[in-house]
Write a protein that binds this DNA or RNA. Structure first.
Lengths: 139, 139
DNA sequence: ATTAATGCAAAGGATTTGCAATACC
DNA sequence: GGTATTGCAAATCCTTTGCATTAAT
């Protein structure tokens, strides 16, 4: 979080709470869900603050913003950034979200960067389709 | 477009116009931009019709919906689906959108499907960062 | 004391929807 | 004639913003 401090950003109590909520969340939460959980620790926190904090963290590269194929509306989902990227598989059948990481994905990113001279800051690979179970059911 | 007919969907004049606009567009257009171009051929066409048609085409897998890293707002961009997927590089510096296709991307998709049993219907790989030129400038 | 962060309510932008009128087969 | 499609305006959802107040250093 030193990145934030360098920019003159204050690490307030609410921000600390939000960061911890994102980091400890087992699933991908949207702004409203984050607010609900954060409220358990700080009932005064407001949705606008959630959005403002998310914008900060996003710009510093501390979190990733996901669309998850817009399975339910146009909202965004958030997750703490990890060292190696993973992709998200969104099932159109049951709505499940699965994660998938692979060295091949890292390799592809490196190749794209090498081929194009593009300096990658964010990589988002999202796949929509049917999970194993739903694929069976739907013939 | 036979897919559409099978579903009892009528191929109207407006829909034909919209499909042709998307297919012939050199860039990725959003709903409002599509409307503007379609109006040149059918001045009576309405934004709601554009959205309704896009939903149809998307569900039939005839077009892809892109976010392009939300470089300018939360709108979506559309492109006709091609046989092989390509990824989109969005430059945070100059706003340029570049396309990149690679057999490695296809290979990754096949591997993900094989590993997970997931049946991929849509694949979207979007990268945000700095293009070659902007990377130079920003040190 | 200064400056950043917050709450609140209002505004904003993109997309969807209800319904009566219209076009299609 | 019956059904799908359309236009229009209103509604909805998600997100952002202005401004007065509060908290942080």
């Amino acid at each position: 979080m030193d990145e934030l401090v360098e920019r003159g950003v204050r690490i307030t109590r609410q921000r600390r709470v939000l960061i911890s909520v994102i980091q400890n969340s087992p699933t991908h939460l949207d702004a409203t869900a984050l607010l609900a959980i954060a409220k358990q620790q700080d009932s005064g926190i407001n949705l606008a603050t959630v959005y403002r904090t998310l914008a900060l963290l996003k710009n510093c590269g501390l979190i990733d913003e996901l669309d998850l194929m817009h399975l339910e509306g146009e909202k965004h989902y958030y997750e703490a950034k990890t060292s190696s990227d993973h992709c998200h598989l969104a099932c159109f059948g049951c709505g499940a979200i699965m994660e998938y990481a692979s060295p091949l994905f890292e390799k592809l990113k490196r190749k794209i960067a090498a081929d194009s001279g593009f300096r990658i800051r964010v990589a988002r690979l999202e796949l929509g389709g049917l999970c194993k179970q739903c694929a069976k059911t739907t013939a």
